[in-house]
Amino acid sequence: MSGLANALRRHPELMVAAVLVIAVLAIGTINPVFWQPSNLFSLLRASVITGILALAVLLVMLSGGIDVSFPAFAIAAMYLTVKAMIAWQFDGVLLPFLMASSIGLALGLVNAVFVHYLRMIPLIVTLGTGTAVRGFILGVVGTSQINIDQMPPLLIAFARGEFFSVTQADGSQAGLSSMVLVYAGLAIAVHLILRHTMLGRGIYALGGGEEAARRVGFNTRRITFVIYGLAGALAGFAGLLHGAMIWTANPRDMVGLELDVIAAVVLGGASIFGGRGTVIGTMLGVLTLVVITNSLIILGVDTTWQRVVVGAIVIAATAVTAWRDRKRIA
């Protein structure tokens, strides 16, 4: 029994990999439509935004913090960028993404200031900044939704790109969104940072013990700013990508998304107490969550049950990680 707990401590992604395999087999057996390339591709596409946001949450959670402000930051970055593009009649891809990421970065650094200098609890800080940013966007920038007729065409075209397609049994074409590659690229980058740089090890060290990290010689202030800054930048990037993928910039979007993302990260084996978690586990967690919630439809379950499933996943995944980490808490 403790052998299992140890295995989970060492390879947090084991549990989620097992859950994913079981879920896929079960769903595919009940309704073989699941195996159609168009369904599989759409599931991968659906995991892009949640996935990038999950990378941001993973960074914060590894350091022992938690972030609930990222949906607000993502929406703020997206809405401000699209508004600016329309106002300046600018169309493009690279610059807008740079702008959205920078907005996210700046907001993330605000979180870091509160967390590091005022020693505030990350949950409270990010609840506050997230709410304030949302309020600011709706109150000052605007409340109206920007639809496809006004969205910058190049941005839309970028998000519609496909890099791979197959002909299905019924003769229709199914394509895989290029955005999956963008997500994979970001995931690899975050993985390399966490696994192969001193900065990344510093994030784990911080989650293991802040005082100990300082005594060993880590610059904990710099690490905290990098974590929250990077998380903000990822959120800003994901926000604009989200708008481009659904062809809409809605300032009231992504409400309640923080729970789905945190659920995915915890499901992926990250510890809410910090110091434990991997990129691969997080990606598997995201995929599992997306597969389960999106497959309710093809299983004939009413979509209102989605929230019940998300809630149940949060509780189940946290229970397993708490059991795994119980020695540490005691």
Binding site: M198, L199, Y204, A205, G207, G208, V216, G217, F218, G275
Partner: peptide
């Protein structure tokens, strides 16, 4: 010490930091 890291990494971290390493 860092409870969440391996013994090897706990032993090596400060040496690596003193050496000013950026990559692991």
């Amino acid at each position: 010490l860092f409870p969440n890291l391996s013994v090897a990494e706990n032993l090596a971290l400060s040496t690596e930091l003193q050496a000013g390493k950026k990559l692991v």
